[in-house]
Amino acid sequence: MYASTVRGLLVRGMLAGLIAGLFAFAVAYVVGEPPVRGSIAVEEATAAKEAAPAAGHAGHGGAEAAPAAGEEEELVSRPVQSTVGLATGVLVYGVALGGIASLAFSFVLGRVGGFSPRATAALTAAGAFTTVYFVPFLKYPASPPAVGNPDTIGQRTTLFFLMILLSVLLGVGAIILGRRLAPRLGNWNATLAAGGGFVVAAALAFLVLPDNTDAVKPEFPAALLWEFRVASVTVQVVMWVVFGIVFGVLAQRLLGRRTDPAGAQATAPQPASALG
């Protein structure tokens, strides 16, 4: 009975994530690809500049040295990366996080404040955006191609996922804290206290975790970096706004026609031991 409701929510969460992913992909293609393209151009120009003096020293063979340093071997062409490749990444991300968000929704529904399923869905989307993307972004912001050093990818990935985990755990902690405080402080003040606790704890995490070892090089164009990061935030905002709206409608519709399983069993000709 309840299991089928959870399954229904999960399927709807993944569907809403897919729809959100389509919108996010459109935004990523339109506002995200230009700065990605620009960064790759910067990367290639830098590599060509570095290769040029070396070729000059050798006196000959410059024609061979330049392409070897300037261009990487292409497994997937740029046109594919920027269309089907981008779509794959964004859609899988949308479906997977849509599913996870619907499970989080199933846990908090009716347990945090007196919100309708639609409002709970909106709050879940806002919470997911904040904890999974935005707080980690403030510590380790998204970076365009050409910024990172390939040798530090291990450390950067570990720190980034650690930051996501910490941020999600702090978010869960804030919800639990808010629920505990609500009877004493009232809903409004409990929410403020829990939110404040989250901000302080996240700030402490920012201080404790090491800085990104791979700072953006001073010669990288600031406007391009800004454009890329705004695009990255926009993609995520669109993703979660669409998810919150679509999942809210679907969840409200599914949950609105539920009947009380305990009531159903009480009227059915089954022994009381069938309960549960």
């Binding site: 990605v36 990366q81 490749g85 794959t88 990255s232």
Partner: peptide
């Protein structure tokens, strides 16, 4: 092994905020 998966989702990885190259 290889770079196929990384290359395929490369742009999404950067724009979604994951560390890449």
């Amino acid at each position: 092994s290889g770079e196929g998966v990384h290359e395929w989702v490369h742009d999404g990885r950067h724009l979604l905020g994951f560390p890449c190259h």
